[in-house]
Design a binder for these strands. Structure first.
Length: 271
DNA sequence: AGGGTGACCTGTCGGC
DNA sequence: TGCCGACAGGTCACCC
């Protein structure tokens, strides 16, 4: 469910409301991907200072330490005073003076991990290898091209790896490559400067637009207010195998790369 | 060190 | 209707 835009939309939907809230209680149910790494009760009385995002992680800065939250494949957060009764797949809950934050995650690929600081070994393991933020000033077209030159794998898999640029998941990888006119199987190190510049621009454009539209709602994404996004209305190729390309009408093709499905238009996207 | 694969987990959908 | 396999928005640990 969550790629960078969904995570950012989630952040925006509750960051202001939770800022400066005092933690009253913390509940961790069925194990997520990793243990919380602290006694839940040790968080009681702490203040949630603010909510940041790094790649697909949400970082809740506390008065002492931080919580790293990842939504995995199927996670979503809710925040408010009047949440419905917890269900089978609600695995983490934090009651604060300003509302309750709850993680719903059927597949449990998500995580909530406490770290004393960003220098904590676990925090470094999770955040240390992340590439640059695509919507930030550090995402530079020249440096992007130089980094691609060092990779011989297919460009789509390089995007998914997230060690050059973060936040582009399986949906947006297909979408950005479509917008840039680049075949997903193109070797990263074979991309010319103008092509990588087009991809750089497409990544910024697609992700920024998806955030502006409230994220994707392919299945059941909703932000922490329960509101769903509208990006799926705009998908050019993702999940459209066999359907006519929205630009040229030729059938959208699909293939598998690294056990993930990829969609592209053979006519609009050149090798 | 880059690149490929399996693993983690539950739900849903299509085919027989 | 039931069963079974394929697949789903992520990414880590492990091989070579």
């Amino acid at each position: 469910m969550p790629e960078l835009p969904e995570v950012e939309v989630t952040r925006l939907s509750f960051a202001d409301r939770i800022a400066n809230a005092q933690i009253k209680s913390v509940f961790m149910g069925k194990a997520l991907r990793w243990p919380l790494a602290c006694e839940p009760s040790s968080l009681h009385g702490q203040t949630v200072l603010r909510v940041r995002r790094r790649g697909k992680y949400l970082l809740l800065d506390l008065s002492a330490g931080l919580l790293l939250i990842h939504l995995g494949m199927s996670g979503s957060l809710s925040f408010g005073f009047d949440l419905p009764l917890p269900g089978k797949h609600d695995h983490f809950e934090m009651v604060t003076s300003q509302g309750t934050l709850r993680l719903h995650d059927p597949r449990r690929f998500g995580a909530v991990v406490y770290a004393a600081s960003e220098l904590d070994p676990m925090a470094r393991k999770l955040l240390g290898r992340l590439g640059v933020e695509p919507l930030g000033d550090d995402f530079d077209a020249q440096a992007f091209h130089a980094a691609l030159k060092l990779r011989k794998t297919a460009i789509k898999q390089v995007l998914l790896a997230g060690d050059i640029v973060v936040g582009v998941g399986n949906i947006y990888a297909s979408e950005t490559l479509f917008l840039a006119g680049i075949r997903p199987t193109t070797r990263a190190n074979s991309m010319s400067k103008p092509r990588s510049a087009r991809l750089h621009e497409a990544i910024r454009q697609v992700l920024a637009q998806a955030v502006a539209k409230g994220g994707s709602t392919l299945k059941d994404f909703s932000n922490a207010n329960g509101e769903s996004g509208h990006f799926q209305l705009e998908a050019m190729v993702y999940d459209r195998g066999g359907l006519p390309c929205r630009v040229c009408g030729s059938p959208v093709k699909s293939l598998r790369q690294g056990q993930r499905s990829t969609f592209y238009c053979a006519s609009c996207q050149k090798p």
